[in-house]
Amino acid sequence: MVNALAPQTAERAAPSPPSAGPAVDGRRRGRRRQVVVAYLFLAPTLLFFAVFLFLPLGFALLLSMSRWAGFHLGDIDPVGLDNFAGLFADGSTFLTPVLTNTLLFALGTVVLALAGSVLVATCVDRLRFQGLWRTLYFLPIVTTVVAVGNVWKYMYEPGGLVNGVLNAAGLGSVAFLQDPDTALPSVVVVQAWASVGTAILVLTAGLKSIPESYYEAAALDGAGQVTVFLRITLPLLRPSLLFVCVTQFLTGLQSFALIIVMTKGGPGDATAVAALEMYRQAFSYGDWGTASAAAFVLFLVVLVVTLAQLWFFRRKGEDA
């Protein structure tokens, strides 16, 4: 994965000898034309990245170290690291419950999605109609978060499907999204439900790459299914498992669309996560400085996880 990202550095053209006739002149003109054409083809892309990547990054960094209530750009008031200090000051909700919620949300999603996808992927591998199952498990992924969030919110209602099933089983109703104790786990279930399809896809591909001969050898040795799963499937599936873990964890750290749709961070701060806090600070409270600082803190967390992942995969790559 990492190696595939390395740019091709092969510059095959040897420098042509000077004054070697009109053919070379023509080729050289062709080269010069290629340079112009290349930058022409890249112009929209480079322009876009300048305006929508580098300018915003600089702007966000500036805002994170300023006090600003919006409106006039001239009113941006530099305050150094005050915004960052404010986030971690006594009485700030950023560390607890917001960052804690973020980690719990990401972690919960990973655990649930991983457990579900391992179970389904290993079972699907033995069945017919694999395409059909894959299609079904994939439906949530192509569905807008507004649909996913609202349908589940409705299913969690006192008169909704989930409580309907609980009541039919003789259990009492649960106020899933209204009770601060159950709100976060309830949202985690939905996020895991929505992401399990991708995980199944990755794990199925991983399973397919395990040589059949390993299983045959194990069968000859008389190994039971549980032993085969623990001793062959799981260890050989480790790269795929790790990949699913890290990507789902990163997605979980950044996600807040589902929470906006379902709970808006409530009740109280029970489902407030970092990206949502950033969004609210800016667009609800007009505190753009604190919002930008929160964004960079979360970015730092994401970056650390990403680098740890790269480091880990690179080390693994050396063994292989």
Binding site: P7, F49, F52, P56, L57, Q254, F256, A282, W288, A295
Partner: peptide
């Protein structure tokens, strides 16, 4: 250089940009 630049754009999470994009 341009290729590395393109690759590097993928590492920035989208939430970092909502505020500055809106202001831009």
């Amino acid at each position: 250089f341009v290729f590395r630049l393109v690759l590097s754009t993928m590492m920035f999470p989208p939430f970092l940009f909502f505020i500055p994009h809106f202001l831009i």
